[in-house]
Structures are given as structure tokens and as C-alpha cells.
Amino acid sequence: MKLTSNFRAIQAVLVDAEQRQIKDKVVADWLDKLKDASYDVDDVLDEWNTAILKLQIEGVENASIPEKNVCFFFPSPRFCCKRVALRRDIGLKIKEINET
């Protein structure tokens, strides 16, 4: 996932910038902005992982409830709508972070 890759790259740069900020005040300002972006990425990754786990749990619960003419292997339409909404919300957040 590109966001995870970006997060790792940001973390590596932060380590280097921590050392440079002592000598260069411009680096200190830039470092603060990069830290903020890093926190945003971490929050989105946590939100994504939590939401996926929640959807998986709901999918298992939905699978145990018999529905008319629907095999339990297929998630309910409500489950699918939630996944689409989640992807859209997370996608918008990732786009905003990438622009930042």
C-alpha cells in the first residue's frame, strides 16, 4: 500500500531531520510540518485497520443470519455499502494527506 510506504519514508526522514534541526531552524519548522503529516498518516492507517476488522466481524455475524435466496458466502448488501463508504472516506483522507 502506497500510504504505508509513504509513512515509512516519512519516519526515516524524521530521524535524520531530528539531528539537523539543532543546527538549522528552517529544518525545525519543516520537521514540525512533517511530524503533523506523519501523525495524520498514522491515524488514517489505524482507522483503516480498525474499520476493516469491524467489517470482518460484521460480515461473520451477517453470514450466520439466513437471508432469503442468498448464500451465506456472499455478504449482505448493507455490508457491501459500508465497505464502499469506508473506501471512499479513507480514500479522501489519503488524497488530502498526499496533497499536504
Rank of each mutant, 00 (worst) to 15 (best):
M1N: 04
M1S: 11
M1A: 09
M1Q: 05
M1V: 05
K2R: 05
K2T: 07
L3V: 08
T4H: 05
T4C: 04
S5F: 03
S5G: 03
N6F: 05
F7I: 05
F7E: 01
R8I: 03
A9Q: 05
A9G: 01
I10D: 04
I10S: 04
I10Y: 00
Q11D: 05
Q11M: 04
A12N: 03
V13N: 09
L14F: 01
L14W: 01
L14M: 04
L14C: 02
D16C: 01
D16F: 02
D16L: 08
A17H: 04
E18H: 06
R20Q: 12
Q21V: 00
D24Q: 00
K25D: 02
V26C: 04
V27G: 01
V27W: 02
A28L: 07
D29F: 02
D29W: 00
W30G: 03
W30N: 04
L31M: 06
D32C: 02
D32G: 02
K33M: 06
K33S: 07
L34G: 01
L34S: 00
K35T: 09
K35M: 04
K35P: 00
K35Y: 04
D36A: 09
A37N: 07
S38G: 09
V41H: 04
V41E: 01
V41D: 00
D43I: 00
V44C: 02
V44D: 01
V44M: 03
L45Y: 01
D46Q: 11
D46Y: 10
E47C: 03
N49T: 09
N49E: 11
N49Q: 10
T50G: 04
A51C: 03
I52R: 08
L53P: 03
L53S: 14
L53M: 11
K54G: 08
L55P: 01
L55Q: 13
Q56P: 00
E58I: 10
E58L: 15
G59W: 05
V60S: 11
V60F: 10
N62K: 08
A63D: 07
A63R: 05
S64V: 14
S64Y: 13
P66N: 08
P66W: 08
P66D: 09
P66H: 10
K68W: 10
K68C: 07
N69W: 12
V70L: 15
C71V: 09
C71I: 11
C71G: 15
F72D: 13
F74Q: 13
P75E: 10
S76I: 09
P77D: 14
P77H: 10
R78Y: 10
C80F: 09
C80K: 14
C80T: 14
C81Q: 15
C81K: 14
K82G: 05
K82I: 05
R83D: 10
R83Q: 14
R83K: 15
V84S: 09
V84P: 01
L86R: 02
R87H: 13
R87P: 02
R88H: 14
D89T: 15
L92H: 12
L92K: 15
K93E: 07
K93Y: 03
K93R: 15
K93L: 11
I94T: 09
I94A: 08
E96T: 15
I97C: 08
I97K: 06
N98R: 10
N98A: 13
E99C: 06
E99R: 14
T100L: 14
T100P: 00
T100I: 11
T100M: 13
